[in-house]
Design a protein around this nucleic acid. Structure first.
Lengths: 222, 222
DNA sequence: TTGGGCATGACAGGTCCATGTCAGGTTGTT
DNA sequence: AACAACCTGACATGGACCTGTCATGCCCAA
């Protein structure tokens, strides 16, 4: 999963970011609304964590802006305890949930999971394609009943491909979704990971097709 | 578990050793019967893997020698495919099993487990002492139903103490059983590990007693 | 057949974790 | 009290694993 954290307090931002990374996710960080807007416009995020008090404006405007622009990426608002009335209006403006500061990480984690589950539609976390089963929550793959260990990056890549099974992803798109803004990574990294994933999927009906010049697609050749 | 591998072919010996170590066990290696006898006399091994063709004599003599000396450490013989008649006589001489070369590691592994299980008497692998449950096969500890993660060395130490619950182990004895001949380790390492194990056992009725000048003993204070 | 896109084995850097040592403190025995 | 045995927090080391790059070779299209 790729998170966008919008928060101007650097200490807090770093703390939250590192916890999210520990869970194996990617985080980009924006300290201003202007930056947040630029990041969000890529549409590469699965979840946005939004502080309301920001130096160049109110989180509310960002929220309105996003929803007006048809961006339905889940947004969780981080509010201070005092701003009670705000919290309700946040939900009205299209926020998916809010967490009152101070919070501990396990609470935030739980809210994130809940929101992601709600948005992804299905209550269940196990996706099945052909003879492949993928548990998005546990991050676990099994092929023909055989359990297979994936490394984190392989996992995230497979998650992308399998949740939009049949869709074509360009290498650049995959880079954008799998890496944070400031690591800059060659597209070859994607080729390498596709190769590694293919190795894991050997013997399965499910395979990753190369569309020369376009990208990759997960197919079920049943 | 501590293994003694008696094998003169260095390549094969190294291959087998490293696989055994990967399983978290200790291996000492002897290339000659003379060395093997010296090693085995310590009685610190849980299992002996014995090649028959050795430069300074026949594995048979070693086997006879050990059994005559009342050493009932399990012995698995490694034979070449041709030596058919030998294999039966091996069992008569007191071998517990044999494996014909070439074999793959999973086969050897399975035979070792089988022999160890047979020798330890109980078919079940879960030992219970007081409010502590220890699964020797899975290498897993739980205290009062709470699952606890142990590191490999802690596991092996606990395994020793719990399978001979009530017996006193001197620090030197523990070093001999937990480490291979060529790592030389201070007795302080044992003190450290006892301390770590005690931490894991906090809140349990079961505890490790210090017998000053003598060693350690696992007790159930129920 | 030529060139760009793609595949892949080998490798280097980094991170995480298990492990044993050390130093200094505590306990127990004489 | 004095000495040895023992305990323990902090640390250095090393190995295992993850990860992205590189170099090289393959493959497909024109």
């Amino acid at each position: 999963m790729k998170y966008l954290l919008v928060e101007d307090n650097m200490d807090l931002a770093n703390a939250i970011s590192s916890r999210i990374r520990l869970d194996g996710h990617i985080v980009d960080h924006a300290a201003k609304i202007a930056d947040a807007t630029a990041f969000a416009s890529t549409g590469d995020y699965d979840l946005i964590l939004l502080d309301i008090m920001l130096p160049d404006g109110d989180g509310r405007s960002f929220l309105k802006q996003q929803r007006a622009a048809q961006n339905d990426t889940p947004i969780i608002v981080l509010t201070a305890r005092s701003q009670v009335s705000d919290r309700i209006s946040m939900l009205d403006l299209g926020a998916d949930d809010y967490v009152t500061k101070p919070f501990d990480h396990s609470e935030l984690q739980a809210r994130c999971r809940a929101v992601l589950r709600r948005k992804s539609g299905s209550a269940q976390s196990v996706l099945t394609v052909g003879d492949v089963e993928f548990d998005t929550l546990a991050g676990h793959l099994s092929v023909k009943g055989q359990s297979i260990n994936l490394r984190n990056r392989e996992l995230r890549l497979l998650e992308l491909l399998i949740t939009s099974q049949g869709k074509v992803f360009s290498k650049q798109k995959l880079v954008d979704r799998l890496f944070s803004y400031d690591d800059d990574v060659s597209e070859n990294a994607i080729e390498v990971y596709i190769g590694r994933l293919r190795k894991h999927l050997e013997g399965s009906r499910v395979q990753i097709k190369t569309l020369r010049g376009l990208g990759y697609r997960l197919d079920d050749d049943g």
